[in-house]
């Protein structure tokens, strides 16, 4: 039973301000035709980067919340997600890591 308290927008509220990101171009893409609405990316993304809209996953918060783990692409059952690493010198900055 998924606890949606720790998913998407609610997760973003919890982790907001707890990391730094250097602005970057979007680097995670969803093929909306392939997306079957399973919610895997939405539920498990540790950055809460995804939003479900009309049964389709949207990568709405990649630029400001992506942790660059690459999990989304691996857990997508229809291979609808493309994960790329962001351009050098941009993206997440770790401290106390």
């Amino acid at each position: 039973m998924t606890d949606y308290e720790f998913v998407g927008e609610k997760l973003r509220q919890k982790i907001k301000g707890l990391f730094e990101i250097i602005p970057k171009q979007k680097h995670v893409f969803i093929d909306e035709v392939r997306c079957n609405g399973c919610e895997n990316c939405y539920i498990f993304c540790p950055g809460g980067c995804f939003t479900m809209e009309d049964g389709i996953a949207k990568a709405t918060h990649i630029e400001d919340f992506c942790q660059e783990c690459g999990t989304c692409a691996k857990i997508c059952p229809t291979n609808a997600i493309t994960y790329k690493e962001p351009e050098g010198g941009t993206g997440i900055i770790r401290r106390f890591s």
């Binding site: 998924t2 606890d3 308290e5 720790f6 919890k14 498990f44 993304c45 857990i75």
Partner: peptide, 17 residues
């Protein structure tokens, strides 16, 4: 493991909480 997470697991933040 991701597979175990997919098999009925939760977002990892749930476990910390």
């Amino acid at each position: 493991g991701l597979q175990e997470m997919l098999n009925g697991g939760e977002n990892l933040n749930y476990y910390i909480h």
